[in-house]
């Protein structure tokens, strides 16, 4: 049973991240996702200090706010003339450092050690269950992630057309009267939410892997956004199941193995994708050259 809950949690994390990651990869903001996943740490630490528990809904909101602040600061420094990747670097390291200091100073009050910050404790997810009377309703993390997934799915499907247009042609979107900035911040807010709910399971750094790697692999397999999202979700779920298997076999970090499994799938897509794979393209070129010589 424990394996089931862990895989379910992993699959939910991967699904949340994969859906949003597609838009991040298309908008060339993969590193903003990286920045947000680090920057929400002070929000999480403060929420811990205030509420004394993990997994509350307020924590989600608080962290989403901190995510907003991070994106806002990045934009602010960029418009002030700092290069974009440097401003990302300055903002996320500063916020992450604040978070680490808060956690280490209040180590007694915060039930969260620094290893967990980096690579999560998905193995303990099943012990922290939601009780309703005498009834055990399953791990809290699953409920939190389910809620997050519901919000993400609702928002993305409701504004699918707008998100799509903003991802591919922001100028056209603006010309058509779509508030591009609003959708930008909406996407960033969703990314913050997904990061925070996944945080406990996979940690700050490995969230980035699930945000970027499955969508990037899917991007190599298809040219359609809808298919890309679907493929990314499938790749994410396969990574969480295969990663859990590998982790049990190797006796190593589950979250780390999940990201490694995603990496293997990306490598396969990179080499053997029917349309964009390295090996397939080479072979097609050679076939064309041979055919040309024969003809």
């Amino acid at each position: 049973m424990s394996g089931f809950w862990i895989m379910l949690t992993g699959a939910l994390v991967a699904t949340c991240c994969a859906v949003l990651g597609c838009f991040l990869v298309l908008r060339r903001m993969a590193l903003v996702g990286d920045a947000i996943s680090h920057a929400v740490l002070p929000g999480i630490a403060i929420a811990f200090l205030v509420s004394g528990s993990r997994g509350s809904f307020f924590m989600l909101l608080g962290a989403a706010l901190v995510g907003f602040v991070a994106v806002f600061l990045i934009q602010l420094f960029q418009s002030g003339g700092v290069q974009s990747d440097a401003s990302i670097g300055v903002v996320f390291t500063a916020l992450f450092a604040v978070g680490v200091v808060l956690i280490s100073l209040n180590a007694r009050n915060i039930d969260l050690d620094l290893d967990c910050v980096l690579f999560g404790e998905i193995a303990y997810v099943q012990w922290n269950t939601l009780e309703f009377g005498a009834l055990s309703l399953g791990p809290k993390a699953v409920w939190l992630l389910g809620l997050t997934l519901l919000v993400i799915a609702a928002v993305v499907s409701l504004f699918y057309k707008q998100f799509k247009l903003c991802a591919f042609d922001p100028a056209l979107a603006a010309a058509l009267g779509i508030p591009v900035a609003v959708f930008h911040y909406l996407l960033m807010g969703l990314v913050s939410m997904a990061t925070v709910s996944s945080f406990e399971s996979v940690g700050a750094v490995l969230v980035v892997g699930l945000l970027v790697i499955p969508p990037a692999a899917a991007y190599l397999l298809t040219d359609r956004l809808g298919t890309m999202i679907g493929l990314a979700v499938v790749i994410g779920i396969v990574s969480s199941v295969a990663g859990y298997g590998a982790a049990v076999w190797l006796d190593a970090s589950i979250a780390g193995c999940m990201v490694c499994a995603a990496g293997v799938q990306f490598a396969l897509a990179f080499l053997f994708s029917p349309s964009h794979g390295l090996v397939t393209r080479r072979r097609r070129l050679r076939a064309a050259a041979l055919g040309g010589r024969a003809g």
Binding site: A30, L31, G33, D34, L118, F119, V205, L206, V208, G209, L211, V212, I213, A216, A247, L250, A252, S253, A255, G256, C257, M258, V259, C260, A262, G263, F266
Partner: peptide, 14 residues
Amino acid sequence: MGIVLSLFFAVGIV
């Protein structure tokens, strides 16, 4: 960069 960063780090964590 995101892919390489997280993948290498994941290998390191494992």
